[in-house]
């Protein structure tokens, strides 16, 4: 416990040091990416899945970024008979960022598709087919940029849609992602007016 405390204090000190010693990192031209494990909870069913979540994002201006996200199903924590065997998603959309120093709170809207198939445990489903369904997602998150190349992030995503292959099932779900991301500025910052 003492080690965790020391690590946390060291992390905060380093973060502040980086924050005040460099130019603003989240700005036009920033390219960032990450990969993490993302747990989720479905609405309307007692089903929880977890995913490998990957993201690539580019800042078109200081406040707007274009983002592409992919989720690959890794398994489920529950065992419902009419559960999904695989749920994979692709999302593409734009985020609006509220930047203060190296902190970056953002909200976004990302339409996408879901490629899913059901389990064949239930007698209702003898053969399960993969099906592609359109989905809508709203995203909110926070990035904290630590130096030129790293950031810590948390993100939550609300998904709406329905799977209509072999059996009708809602795809409404909330997903959580957190971890360490990588970033690089692809454009030089403009010199500040003296």
């Amino acid at each position: 416990m003492e080690q965790i405390k020391n690590f946390f204090i060291l992390f905060l000190l380093l973060s502040n040091m980086f924050a005040y010693s460099q130019d603003q990192i989240p700005r036009k031209g920033l390219v960032k990416g990450m990969a993490t494990i993302s747990p989720a909870k479905m609405f309307g069913y007692n089903e929880s899945y977890f995913y490998l979540h990957g993201n690539l994002e580019g800042y078109l201006s200081d406040n707007v970024s274009v983002s592409g996200d992919g989720y690959m199903s890794l398994g489920q924590q529950t065992r419902a008979p009419e559960a999904f065997r695989k749920i994979n998603n692709l999302f593409f959309g734009l985020n609006y960022h509220f930047i203060k120093g190296n902190g970056d709170f953002y909200i976004g809207v990302q339409p996408g598709v879901c490629i899913a198939t059901l389990e064949t445990i239930s007698p209702k489903i003898l053969i399960a087919h993969y099906g592609t369904s359109p989905v809508f997602s709203a995203v909110a998150g926070y990035n904290y940029f630590v130096g030129k190349y790293f950031n810590f992030f948390v993100q939550t995503r609300y998904i709406v849609g329905s799977h209509n292959y072999d059996l009708h099932k809602s795809l409404s779900e909330i997903r959580f992602s957190a971890g360490l991301g990588f970033n690089i500025n692809a454009m030089k910052s403009k010199p500040k007016p003296s």
Partner: peptide, 21 residues
Amino acid sequence: LGARSTLSAFSDEGAGIGTGG
């Protein structure tokens, strides 16, 4: 360039959701 989500309603089939660009 943009991305879109669409809600289809008021048809005899019912409501649906869509995605596109």
